[in-house]
Design a binder for these strands. Structure first.
Lengths: 131, 131, 131, 131
DNA sequence: GTGGTCTAGACCACT
DNA sequence: GTGGTCTAGACCACC
């Protein structure tokens, strides 16, 4: 698995796993119905304690990203369910404001920032086409 | 002071203070040369442990947002210095990617996201004009 | 068979089967003396592991819902026997208390809850009349 | 603390803790703003591993029952926030249907059940008045 | 085989 | 002092 976990990072390991799996789904690297490695397998693959993997999987399940088929394994959920849509939209706006603040300290104009965003989107789309 | 700290939040209190002061500077609510309350004063004003305030001031000083004039007090820095420009640009791009991932789960297109960003920028600019 | 089993659910599959058969009996969809499909048949019909079906049937037999006539098959019991009547009554009361607790967090009054219960009963009765 | 945990029960210990705290809040035994024992304290009081306590507290925080004031402790939340109201209402109705099914096997009529419910409510209210 | 739970004991960030 | 994270290793229910 392409998971790249850094135990030295300040973001918790379980959170890194959560983020990377969500990214893989958004990038279509993981498709609905795909089976994930079992907790023990993944634990062995990336040499992280099984409990930590389990914690990541549980959070992903709570968020509706994964589905657990009892006794059979863990899979990417077939349908996206969005809980707390309003709250999450609010957070997106907040993150965008943070970007504007940070831009000020780098002396970037809002136009610079928009250009940068467009470029990031371009790269993102390209990354998805390539597979 | 208009600092609005929420002890219930999951972001550390010292971080909230850092963020809000940086926001105030970006919004021109605080101007270069403005004097900040002393650690003790601010501690009393918002009833937060002085150690926490001190930690926030230290971080802001490290980031070049504040200047400490020994014996005179703490002031908003006259000039923006950018430490770690490259690293901070990288983080901005990373944050933008996070936005794209989150958008996927809310079933927003990249165009939706761009529109949202433009709107946030519009509001941001308006907020600054009003003073 | 109308059994509708969801492998994603957190309630065990064998338990779902038990619940649905008990519901069918209570709703008179299944009548005393009705023959149930064999473990193998049902296993094939709903593509569930035979062990799981067997486990459900065993539990239903223990509860007195089913009767196994050796060599003839499995049938809905002719008479209701109540095992552990007291214990089961206690559990009903406990479930009702759980409802009161949950209602508190949804800011429903006990009257709201009573009204809701009446409505559920109405629908339940209607469902039975319709066949 | 009046917590009564049974390690032999089939419901997980952390879940028992969650249920009992939610019940205490609903019964007004715990009031908004009340401080809960720290993870370590409660761990010592009921001789349960701190991790298990922490798991219960975290779930309660996710549900909005508790609030964590960083470095200061854990408190009963000041305001009830109800997430997933619709889903939880649906579950209440489902639980009520389960009661109707169970009643069938105990040969209780729907009127019997209503009477029982009224009685449980009466006791519930009385329990609250007494303090 | 799968994931869920629990214990014991350690380290760290925050206040 | 507080809670959050992680490891190591165990047991159990379910399929």
């Amino acid at each position: 698995m392409w998971l790249d976990v850094d135990p030295r990072s300040s973001t918790p390991i379980y959170q890194q796993i959560v983020d990377q799996i969500k990214e893989a789904v958004a990038r279509k690297v993981l498709q609905p119905g795909d089976k994930l490695p079992s907790v023990r397998e993944l634990s062995a693959m990336i040499t992280i304690n099984p409990n930590t993997i389990a914690k990541a999987y549980q959070q992903l399940e709570r968020e509706g990203v994964l589905e657990v088929l009892r006794g059979r394994g863990t899979f990417i959920a077939e349908r996206i369910v969005h809980v707390n849509r309003e709250e999450r939209l609010r957070q997106i706006r907040e993150t965008m404001e943070k970007l504007l603040i940070e831009a000020h300290y780098l002396q970037l104009t809002t136009d610079d920032l928009m250009e940068l965003f467009k470029e990031v989107i371009r790269q993102w789309k390209q990354g998805k086409e390539e597979r």
